[in-house]
Every structure is written in structure tokens, then in C-alpha cells.
């Protein structure tokens, strides 16, 4: 597949209060960004079980973003973002050993007013993933 044809899919888990609202704001502000992202809304970044991220990669996500409110104090639920930080700090260590380039995953803090940060993160992610190419498929181990 040539780079031209490669349309990466980026799965985003966005908290309802900060990042989802920032994505909305990017919309109301008519900012333009690549159409490669699919946002899944959760109430809090603390809800985003690393299992979902693994599931996304397993199904062919070329990149995954988990995004929530800025630590330490912005979380609508006091400390859900801290729970996300704890999990994904460790998660990043695993990814590479599991055979996935670490750049394919990002943990981001995007507040409700940071529509431009959202756009920047998406642009960067799409660019990075396009450079990396599609997630390498596994060989058919058993024909």
C-alpha cells in the first residue's frame, strides 16, 4: 500500500468534560483536521481500561489516543485523570515490548477550551502514523 492510499484509523477515548468538549469546540469553531479520528466518549479518562486500547490495536487501529482533563486538578471526578496517568505511564512501557511502536499511543490532556490543542494532537498523530505506515500485520502462523 502506498502512503497515498493509506488512510489510518485513530481511535480516541475522550472524557466527556474536557476533551470531548474540546472536540466539540473545534467543531463550533470550524477548525479543520484530518478525518482519520473516531472518538469514543467516556465520562472520565479514568474509565479507559487499557484493555480497550489493546482491543483497538488488535482490531487494526493505527494509533490510539486517550485524552482527559489536565492533572492535577482539572478532573471533573477529582482524580480520574490521575488514575489514567498511573495506568498509561505503565502501559507505554509495555507497548514496545509487545511489538507496537510507542508513537502509536498518546496520553493527552486537553481541556474544554483547548480546541486548537486537539487539532494539533490529531495532526501530529496522523502524520506520525502515516510515516510509520499501517500497523504491521502478523504472519499467518498456521496456514
Amino acid at each position: 500500500m502506498s502512503n497515498e492510499d493509506f488512510k489510518p484509523k485513530i481511535v480516541v477515548f475522550a472524557c466527556n468534560w474536557c476533551t470531548y468538549a474540546a472536540v466539540d469546540l473545534a467543531g463550533t469553531s470550524r477548525m479543520q483536521y484530518p478525518a482519520n479520528v473516531r472518538v469514543i466518549r467516556v465520562m472520565c479518562s479514568g474509565r479507559v481500561d487499557p484493555q480497550f486500547v489493546l482491543e483497538a490495536f488488535h482490531n487494526g487501529a493505527d494509533g490510539v489516543i486517550v485524552a482527559g482533563c489536565h492533572p492535577p486538578t482539572d478532573c471533573h471526578y477529582i482524580s480520574g485523570n490521575i488514575k489514567a496517568l498511573r495506568r498509561y505511564t505503565l502501559f507505554k512501557r509495555l507497548l514496545k515490548s509487545l511489538g507496537i511502536e510507542e508513537e502509536r499511543f498518546r496520553l493527552e490532556w486537553i481541556s474544554a477550551s483547548e480546541a486548537s490543542k486537539w487539532v494539533k494532537v490529531v495532526n501530529e498523530m496522523v502524520e506520525t502514523v502515516k510515516k510509520l505506515g499501517p500497523l504491521k500485520p502478523k504472519l499467518e502462523v498456521v496456514e
Binding site: D49, P50, Q51, E55, L90, F91, L94
Partner: peptide, 15 residues
């Protein structure tokens, strides 16, 4: 009903 043992284990311990 666990999707991925290691992912779940990570989530629990890091939490």
C-alpha cells in the same frame, strides 16, 4: 469476560 489478562492486570496494579 476479561478482554486481555495483562491489560487488566496492569490497570488494576497501576490504579
Amino acid at each position: 469476560n476479561i478482554i486481555d489478562y495483562g491489560g487488566k492486570a496492569l490497570s488494576y496494579i497501576a490504579s
